[in-house]
C-alpha cells in the first residue's frame, strides 16, 4: 500500500521552472533515494509528493488515487524533516502521539502505539522530556517515531541525517534500513550523501536541474551510468574523465574510469605521472596524480601505498571498466 506515480509533474516558482516535468513510478515497499547536486529540486519534488507545495501542472497518484489537489493531511504520508521539526512545547510522548491524536484514536490505543514506537527506537527513558532536552540523534529518533506510529502508506525523508556527526549518521543509516525491512513500507529518501544513497536504496533517482538523469539500482548506476552527469555524480571519489587522443583511441569523445579501476605501480604501467597529493586513509590510499599527456587523475589503492608528494608512479586503467561517452555526454554501448 504505497505505490506513488508522478505524471508530467511540473513546478514553477514565478517564471522559473524548478521541475520542468517529471514522470516517475515508485513501487509499493520500495526504498527510493533522490540524489542530485544542491538546488536541483530534490526537496521540491519531495514536498510536491507530500502536498506541501502545489503542482503547477501534472498529476500525482498514490495507490491509484489522484491526490494532486488533496491536502497533505489526507495523503496518508509521513515526513521526517531535516530540521526534525519537533513540537518544542510538547514532551516526546506527546510529539509521537500527535498524529494519533489528530486521527482521534482512543487514548489507550495511543499509549500502546507510542510505547511500542519508543521501544523500537530506544526512546522509552526519554518519553517525558521535551525535545530541547535531547541530543541530535535522539531528536532524530523522535521525528522518526512520530512518522512510524501512524502506519502511513509511505515515508518521506528530507536529508534526515545531515545534522548528525559521521558516527551517528552511520548507525542511524542502519537503523533506518532495518526499519524499512521491518515495516516494508515505501520510503522516499532525499540525500546528497553518496554512501547513504548507495547503501540504502533499492532504486536511486538521479536529479539534475529538476530533470531525472537516470533511475536504477545502485549497482546499475555504478556499472552503467547513462551519461557523464550520472557517471560523475555516482561514486566517490569521482570518476576520472579523459578526452583528447586517449579518448579517440577508444573511439569516444570522453572516456571515464573510476579511481578504483586504476592499477597503481611504482615500476611500470600505461601512464606515467607525478603524485601531487597522497591521502592515506589507512584502509585506502587516494592519490592525485598529474599524468603526462592526460591531466590530473585520482586513483585509489586499497591498503597502504607508500608514496608522497613528488613521487613518480605508473597507472594502468582496467580496460574492461572504461566508460565511453559521445559528444553529447551520453554513454556509448
Amino acid at each position: 500500500m504505497g505505490k506513488i506515480v508522478l505524471r508530467k509533474v511540473n513546478k514553477s516558482f514565478g517564471n522559473t521552472a524548478v521541475i520542468p516535468g517529471i514522470d516517475l513510478a515508485i513501487e509499493d515497499g520500495e526504498f527510493v533515494v533522490f540524489v542530485g547536486p544542491s538546488g536541483c529540486g530534490k526537496s521540491t519534488l519531495l514536498r510536491l509528493i507530500a502536498g506541501l507545495e502545489d503542482t503547477t501542472s501534472g498529476t500525482i497518484e498514490i495507490d491509484g488515487r489522484d491526490v494532486t489537489d488533496t491536502a497533505p493531511a489526507q495523503r496518508r504520508l509521513a515526513m521526517v524533516f531535516q530540521s526534525y521539526a519537533l513540537y518544542p512545547h510538547m514532551s516526546v510522548r506527546k510529539n509521537i502521539a500527535f498524529p494519533l491524536k489528530m486521527a482521534k484514536l482512543p487514548q489507550e490505543q495511543i499509549n500502546k502505539k507510542v510505547e511500542d514506537a519508543a521501544r523500537i527506537l530506544n526512546l522509552t527513558n526519554y518519553l517525558e522530556r521535551r525535545p530541547g532536552q535531547l541530543s541530535g540523534g535522539q531528536r532524530q529518533r523522535v521525528a522518526i517515531g512520530r512518522a512510524i506510529v501512524r502506519q502511513p502508506s509511505a515515508f518521506l525523508f528530507d536529508e534526515p541525517l545531515s545534522n548528525l556527526d559521521a558516527a551517528l549518521r552511520g548507525s542511524m543509516r542502519l537503523e533506518i534500513s532495518e526499519l524499512h525491512h521491518q515495516l516494508n513500507t515505501t520510503m522516499i529518501y532525499v540525500t546528497h550523501d553518496q554512501v547513504e544513497a548507495m547503501t540504502m536504496a533499492d532504486k536511486i533517482v538521479v536529479l539534475n536541474a529538476g530533470n531525472i538523469e537516470q533511475v536504477g539500482s545502485p549497482l546499475d548506476l555504478y556499472r552503467s551510468p547513462r551519461n557523464l552527469f550520472v557517471a560523475g555524480f555516482i561514486g566517490s571519489p569521482k570518476m576520472n574523465f579523459v578526452s583528447g587522443s586517449y579518448a579517440q583511441a577508444h573511439s569516444a569523445v570522453t572516456v571515464g574510469v573510476r579511481p578504483e579501476h586504476l592499477v597503481l605501480s611504482r615500476e611500470s604501467g600505461e601512464w606515467h605521472g607525478t603524485v601531487t597529493v597522497a591521502e592515506h586513509l589507512g584502509a585506502d590510499t587516494y592519490l592525485h596524480v598529474q599524468v603526462d599527456g592526460i591531466g590530473l587523475i585520482t586513483a585509489r589503492a586499497s591498503g597502504e601505498f607508500a608514496v608522497k608528494h613528488g613521487d613518480s608512479v605508473f597507472i594502468t586503467p582496467d580496460r574492461s571498466r572504461i566508460h565511453r561517452f559521445d559528444a553529447n555526454g551520453n554513454a556509448l554501448a
Binding site: 506541501l52 493531511a73 509521513a78 524533516f81 521539526a85 519537533l86 513540537y87 498524529p99 489528530m102 512520530r146
Partner: peptide, 17 residues
C-alpha cells in the same frame, strides 16, 4: 519555523488543529 507547522500538516492536523 514553518517546517514545524508543515510537520503538523503531515501529521494530519487540520488548519485549526
Amino acid at each position: 519555523p514553518g517546517e514545524i507547522l508543515e510537520a503538523a500538516r503531515m501529521d494530519g492536523a487540520s488548519l485549526w488543529g
